[in-house]
C-alpha cells in the first residue's frame, strides 16, 4: 500500500530537486513513486515551490499518460498494443487476460490487486507479444504466461 498524503514527505522530495532546472517531471515521478499517484493536495505544494500556477502543474500531470490522479492496484500489468505485438496476435492475448480478470483497459479489480493498462511498445518487438508486470519485462507471451501472471498477482 502506498502511504497516505503527507506534506512533509512531499517537501523532502521537492528539496531533493531544488536547484535542478526544469525538474517538474522528475518531481512528479518521485511523488508518484512515494504516494502511488500524484494526489490532488500535491499540486498546490509543487506549484508554490516551482513558482508555477496550479493550472500549469495540473496541465502537465494530465498531459502525460504515466501520471495517475488515483493510485493503481497493488500490481500493474501493462500489455503492449503496438504494431509488432499486434502482428503476433497480441490483441487476442490481451483480450484473454482482460477476460480472465474481468477487467476493461485501465480497470482495477474490485479487491485492488491488479490494474491492467495498455502500453505502446516496450522495445521487445522481436519477442512479441510482450508486457510489463510491476516494471519487469515479459515476452513471447502464451497460455503459460497467462497462468504465470495469475500466480504473480495472487
Amino acid at each position: 500500500m502506498s502511504p497516505a498524503w503527507d506534506e512533509a514527505r512531499a517537501q523532502d522530495i521537492l528539496r531533493r530537486h531544488s536547484g535542478r532546472k526544469g525538474a517538474l517531471l522528475p518531481i512528479l515521478h518521485d511523488i508518484q513513486a512515494e504516494f502511488g499517484c500524484v494526489p490532488a493536495p500535491a499540486i498546490p505544494v509543487i506549484a508554490h515551490t516551482l513558482n508555477l500556477t496550479r493550472a500549469e502543474v495540473h496541465g502537465v500531470v494530465s498531459f502525460y499518460h504515466d501520471f495517475r490522479e488515483k493510485p493503481a492496484g497493488r500490481h500493474v500489468l501493462k500489455l503492449c498494443r503496438a504494431e509488432a505485438c499486434q502482428s503476433m496476435n497480441g490483441e487476442a492475448f490481451a483480450q484473454q487476460v482482460l477476460e480472465r480478470f474481468d477487467l476493461d483497459w485501465g480497470g482495477t479489480t474490485p479487491d485492488g490487486r491488479l490494474t491492467i493498462e495498455p502500453i505502446y511498445c516496450l522495445g521487445l518487438c522481436a519477442s512479441s507479444p510482450s508486457a510489463m508486470l510491476d516494471g519487469q519485462p515479459m515476452a513471447r507471451l502464451d497460455q503459460d504466461s497467462l497462468d504465470e501472471i495469475a500466480r504473480e498477482v495472487g
Binding site: A82, E83, C85, Y120, C121, G123, L124, C125, A126
Partner: peptide
Amino acid sequence: DEGDSGTFADR
C-alpha cells in the same frame, strides 16, 4: 524516446 513500434536499437 524510441517510441516507434518495432524498434529497440537505442534500448
